[in-house]
Each structure stands twice: as C-alpha cells, then as structure tokens.
C-alpha cells in the first residue's frame, strides 16, 4: 500500500512553547487511522498543521507524495484532503441544503463561476440530496444550519467534509459531546462515508477508536510515542503509563 499522508519531523511552536515536537507519521492509503492522547497533547494542532490552518515551524507534510507544507487550506483541499472541526464550523445562516451544496461545488469544477445557476445544475443538486440522505438530514434541508440541534450540526459538519469526495478525510473529535445512541449513529455514518477512503481522526471516546480504527497513534506532549494496531496499543506499556493509565486514574 502507498502512503496517503506523510509527516516528517513536523514541529510547531507558539512563541517559546513547542506544542508539536518532531512528529513522524505515515498514514497508508485506505486505512482508518486514529490519533489519541491526553488533553493538551497537541492532537488538534497536528490536524491544523496538516490541513493548512497553521503554518509549520519545521519539518514537512506531504499528501499522496506531494509536498503540501504551508499551503493555504483551499489548495490542500483541492489536492484531495478534507476535514471537519472539533468545534462545529458550518455556515449558520445558510440552509442545510446550501451548506452541503457549497461543500460539493469545488469538486464538481464550478470554481468561482458566475455563469452557472446553481438551481439548474441537476447533477449538483442530486449529489447534494444523496449526501443529505447519507447524513440523515433530508427532512431538515430547508432549515438554516444555525438552528439545528447539536447532533445534527455534527452530522452536517461531517457531511460538508465528506461531500466533495476527497480521498483523505480528517475528522476532529466527530463524536464529542454526543449521547450513546448518537455516537452509534455517528460511527455508522463515518463508516459509510469513509468506505474506500483514508480516514484520520482525533477521538477521545476509546470505544469509538477501538471500534473504527485500523491503526492508532498515541500523541503525548507533542510526540508520537507509539503507532500500532488497536490490539498492540492496548497492550503497550508506554501507552498505558502515559495515557490509558492517566485515564484510569481519573476514573
């Protein structure tokens, strides 16, 4: 299998504080990869570095063998990497339908067109309806996205990220703040949309991680201390000490 995302000595500091301290990670094409770690380990920062929201302080990132370090987010998206956000990040005043449709437009090659009328583009609208059906928001499509319930907004968040058909999808805590039944639905949804694609996710819910992930990386204080299959991670001494142990103490 070839490599989808490759991180090479990636570093990020905010002022004197180094948050990401030399991360090396290869994520293979088609795998579901989870990044776990205690609070403040830098998981979200790592996501922002890969997706272009932050600039790197050092090292390099490549996507499908192509260098994407420090490119603006829209360039990275156009190369086939799409992401969702931990804090819901949608277009609140636009309808749910419009939210999804905007997520599809670039992939359908409309670019900045002002010579197509969106309502007349049958294929675009059909694809939008497909995505809406996938995320279970068909009934709510005319509602402004800002008035959706939390769980619905999370589903829409994932829908926008996956709508454009990117090969690599990064989800930042997709089930954060959800109830058990909502989490189960979210897992099913993630499974469905990432079929045949590469998934990278940050997740706190160990149930979700061990259920979904093919491989897990453990990030502690800006360094990856282990990358392995769920089974091996569970039995990894260092991981237990650094992370799962800490969790157990809390419990």
């Amino acid at each position: 299998m070839s490599i989808a995302i490759s991180l090479n000595e990636v570093r990020k500091s905010f002022g004197p504080t180094e948050i990401i301290r030399g991360v090396n990670l290869n994520i293979e094409k088609g795998e579901r990869h989870a990044i776990i770690g205690p609070n403040g380990a830098g998981k979200s920062t790592l996501f922002h570095l890969v997706s272009g929201r932050y600039n790197l302080s050092g090292g390099s990132v490549s996507l499908n063998g192509e260098e994407i370090s420090n490119l603006p987010p829209y360039e990275i998206y156009r190369k086939g990497l799409s992401r969702s956000f931990q804090v819901t990040n949608i277009f609140p005043m636009m309808s749910v339908f419009e939210n999804v449709r905007c997520g599809i437009m670039w992939s359908k090659d409309y670019k900045y067109s002002f010579w197509h009328l969106v309502d007349r583009e049958r294929e675009l609208n059909e694809r939008t309806q497909e995505v809406l059906a996938e995320i279970g928001l068909t009934d709510r499509q005319h509602v402004p996205a800002g008035v959706l319930t939390y769980a619905e907004q999370r589903a829409l968040e994932i829908g926008i990220a996956s709508a454009g058909g990117a090969d690599v999808i990064m989800l930042d805590e997709p089930t954060a703040g959800m109830s058990h039944s909502e989490t189960d639905q979210a897992i099913a949804l993630i499974r469905k949309i990432t079929e045949g694609k590469t998934l990278v996710m940050v997740e706190h819910d160990m149930g979700v991680v061990f259920d979904l992930a093919d491989r897990i990386s453990v990030l502690v204080y800006g360094e990856i201390i282990a990358t392995d299959t769920p089974e091996n991670i569970r039995n990894n001494k260092a991981v237990q000490e650094a992370y799962l142990g800490a969790e157990a103490e809390h419990a």
Partner: peptide, 20 residues
Amino acid sequence: TPMGRMANAVRDNEERAEFI
C-alpha cells in the same frame, strides 16, 4: 451562481470556506 452562493458562505464563515 456558485460564486454568489460562496459569497454567502464566506460571509457566514470565512474560515470554513477555505476548507471546502
């Protein structure tokens, strides 16, 4: 048009627009 729709999207949430 797609352009007009994205103008609304950028108005609503300029950051997310860059990620689509």
